[in-house]
Computed example of a mutant assay.
Amino acid sequence: MQKVCCFGELLLRFSPQLNGEWIKNATMPVFIGGAELNVATALANWNVPVQYTSILPDNQLSAEIKQYVEQKGIDTSRIPTFGDRIGTYYLPQGADLKNAGVIYDRANSAFAELAPQKVNWDSILDGVSWFHFSAISPALNQNVVDACEEVLKIARSKGITISVDLNYRAKLWKYGKTPAEIMPRLAQYCDVIMGNIWAANWLLDIPLSDTINPESSQEEYLAHSIDTAKAIQAKFPQCSVVANTFRFDAPPTGILYYTTLFTEGQQFVSPTFATDVVVDKVGSGDCFMGGLIYGLYHQKTPQEVINYAAAAAFGKLNEYGDATRQKIADVEMILAKTL
């Protein structure tokens, strides 16, 4: 079977315990992560052949990281090496990446040195049937944007299915361009676009109704999801599948979660999931993206695809760390309890 290639920046996440505990105890957990690596990890757990492509410096730390990733069943043989450092970020325990508490330390990373004609994409895409990236990479600088378009053009020419996660990281867009100026240029190559109605507005300039607000009902959100999906497909004719997620805090510590998939003029809605306690919010969207790819890769029905992806993402909320450890049976058990 041909591989899925997940492409993006590998990051080290430092997760300090606040109130000075990380200083007192002289400890700070470190996670190997990055949105696209989280997707690759989910796919490997679910027996989908997957490779991960990033840019790493040529040093011992990179070698140990690649060995760690390989042990998860992910092919790292197609990671070019240049540059001097691995990007990092700090996220306090229990916080969300959308939370203002995230602190990035990614400037001048090896991945940020990516530019057109610096990587042999033909070699990297050999034997690949699916290419996945996210909106995080184009947030770094213009050279990375140009390199992303370079690989997308080559993937398109090879008939490779292309997916994008509309991850929005406001703190990364610092090089004078707005997401809506950049992402449509890349989204035009994509067959599958995943995000939510707000990300589609911020990154793709898809209209967001003034009537949508925190008090909106589930029915109103689902109706808007159809409008957003139709607008995306009208603007980007290559796109055949649009998925939207809806995740709301349920005070004091819980989550309400449901998702949609739009294809061939019809919207499919997942079950609604709820929990009173969340272990770690990081990576749930990546797990959802992995679930989408898993289902579409295996040509499941649209309802089966969205059900599995949503259940997997919900399961990730109860796991500590960046990437899911769930197996197929674990996801199916969550789904069985809900349906």
Rank of each mutant, 00 (worst) to 15 (best):
T178I: 00
F133P: 01
A112D: 06
I136Q: 07
S134E: 05
A139V: 02
N141P: 11
G101R: 08
Y104P: 09
W173R: 06
Q117P: 01
W121T: 09
E113F: 11
Y104S: 12
W121K: 13
L114T: 10
N99S: 15
T161K: 13
N99D: 15
K171H: 06
E150I: 05
C148F: 03
K98M: 06
L152N: 04
R169A: 10
L166S: 06
C148R: 04
D105G: 10
L97D: 00
K98L: 11
S163H: 03
G159W: 07
P116Q: 11
L152I: 03
P138E: 07
L97T: 14
A170V: 04
F133H: 14
K118R: 15
H132A: 07
P116E: 08
I124T: 13
P116N: 12
L152P: 00
T178D: 05
R156D: 14
I136P: 06
N141C: 12
L125D: 05
N167R: 03
H132D: 10
R106V: 15
F133T: 14
S109C: 09
V102W: 01
K153I: 07
I162F: 01
D126F: 02
A180L: 00
A170T: 04
A147M: 09
A112T: 14
S157W: 06
S157M: 08
R156G: 02
L125M: 07
G176D: 03
A147V: 06
K171R: 15
W121A: 12
H132K: 12
N120T: 08
D105F: 09
A100C: 00
S137N: 09
Y175L: 05
N167I: 12
N143M: 08
G159N: 12
L152E: 01
V144Q: 12
A107M: 09
R156V: 00
Q142F: 08
N143Y: 04
R169N: 05
H132E: 11
L97C: 11
F133Y: 14
Q117L: 09
S157V: 05
V164A: 10
K153T: 10
R156W: 02
K158R: 15
I160A: 01
W130C: 02
A100S: 12
I154F: 01
Y175S: 09
S129Y: 02
Y168N: 08
N167L: 03
K174M: 06
E149R: 13
G127L: 11
N143H: 14
A110I: 03
V102Y: 00
G101E: 14
S157Y: 08
L114P: 12
R156Y: 07
D165Q: 05
E113C: 12
T161W: 01
T161D: 03
I160C: 02
A110W: 04
K158F: 03
N120V: 07
